[in-house]
């Protein structure tokens, strides 16, 4: 399988403050390292789930790939072509293959345009269909996402949240993209509607062969749709693995803590919830060494001085932890054997 998207050492830093007034009062501009060196790839027709707490930079990754933000450093290759530095003009033809569905179904459609106009916009931009052909294509798209053809000329306020998200998906599919960035596409929906939309996304993926970058904070949702999952913490990927490997044998203490927070349907299952202490640190001043060490139950001296690299633990399973190990999270000090094992 060839990679449709390759992200290498992607970083996005925001500069906060540093205006004239701040300078007068001797305040220096602060750098927010929202995304600080992230690498992954997505194969054709594959879904990569990207999870993490709010503020960990997962949406910034999506927006940098879409070039709604200009990356500070790193490479983003779409179909082997680097798009991280391309001029806006040169980028336009490439955008046809790279679409997006946003979280908020209410503000992602222009309230003054009919939903048909909104869905037709990308198709018309690339001259893929006109007049009657465009109409036929719209009707087809509407049917495929589970809406009726006679709803094309209605306005967004006549639809429910779930329906609007279907319209957003139809808009993203119109240009036959190779990759769709789904930025928390179901977080704003009711649980029952969430399932419908996720199933729709799975069906559409099989039909169109499109790859997804599925950004979410809900592990249960990600588990259902993803082939591989990447866990982000404070601007870095701490663990990336095949879904099965990640959910069954997580190796990073953060992933373990996240998984322990997912409610289980089995009342007899021993629930061993790992509650992380404290808040996510500020990305303007991340902890030295391992960024997770300030909240990590197994942190040692080495964690403060050395940043653990993302290393391969098992086939297709990479973890960034000095003491990565599968099995339950042991809070006792790691033995020498643990360290040799990594």
């Amino acid at each position: 399988m060839t990679a449709v998207l390759t992200v290498e050492d992607l970083a996005k830093h925001f500069i906060v403050g540093g205006g004239v007034v701040d300078r007068v009062f001797g305040k220096k501009a602060q750098v927010v390292r929202a995304v600080d060196g992230v690498s992954f790839g997505i194969a054709e027709g594959e879904t990569l789930g990207l999870v993490g707490e709010s503020g960990c930079g997962k949406s910034t990754v999506g927006r940098s790939i879409l070039r709604l933000l200009d990356p500070t450093r790193g490479k983003v290759e779409l179909d082997g072509q680097d798009i991280s530095r391309t001029s806006r003009r040169a980028l336009r033809p490439l955008r046809q293959y790279l679409q997006v569905v946003f979280q908020d179904p209410f503000s992602s459609l222009n309230p003054r345009r009919t939903v048909g106009q909104s869905v037709a916009e990308p198709i018309a931009n690339y001259g893929l269909a006109k007049d009657a052909a465009l109409r036929t294509q719209l009707e087809d798209l509407f049917k495929r996402v589970g809406l009726r053809a006679d709803q094309i000329d209605r306005y967004p306020h006549e639809f429910s949240g779930g329906q609007r998200q279907r319209i957003g998906i139809a808009r993203a599919l119109g240009t036959r993209p190779k990759l769709i960035v789904l930025d928390e596409p179901v977080s704003a929906l009711d649980v029952s509607v969430q399932a419908q939309v996720i199933n729709l996304l799975v069906d559409l993926q099989q039909e169109f062969g499109v790859a997804y970058l599925f950004i979410a904070h809900d592990l249960a949702v990600v588990e259902h749709i993803s082939a591989r999952v990447a866990v982000m913490y404070l601007g870095k990927i701490v663990e990336i693995a095949d879904k099965k490997s990640l959910f069954e044998s997580p190796r990073h203490p953060y992933t373990k803590a996240l998984l322990s927070a997912v409610p289980s349907a089995d009342p007899d299952a021993a629930s061993q919830r790992i509650v992380l202490q404290g808040d996510i640190p500020s990305p303007t001043n991340p902890p030295s060494g391992c960024r997770f060490r300030s909240r990590c139950p197994i942190a040692q001296a080495i964690c403060a001085s050395e940043e653990p690299p993302l290393t391969t633990q098992a086939t297709g399973h990479k973890t960034a932890c000095h003491f990565a190990q599968s099995g339950p999270l042991v809070t006792s000090p790691p033995t020498a054997a643990d360290q040799i094992g990594r």
Binding site: R92, Q96, R112, S118, P122, N125
Partner: peptide, 26 residues
């Protein structure tokens, strides 16, 4: 910052059209 304007950008809508379609009317 509205997602529908960002969606228009990623849809490849030219700047002038974004202005006329999505910004001016509002």
């Amino acid at each position: 910052e509205q997602p529908y304007v960002e969606a228009a950008i990623t849809s490849g809508t030219p700047f002038v059209l974004i202005l006329l379609r999505h910004v001016l009317p509002n």
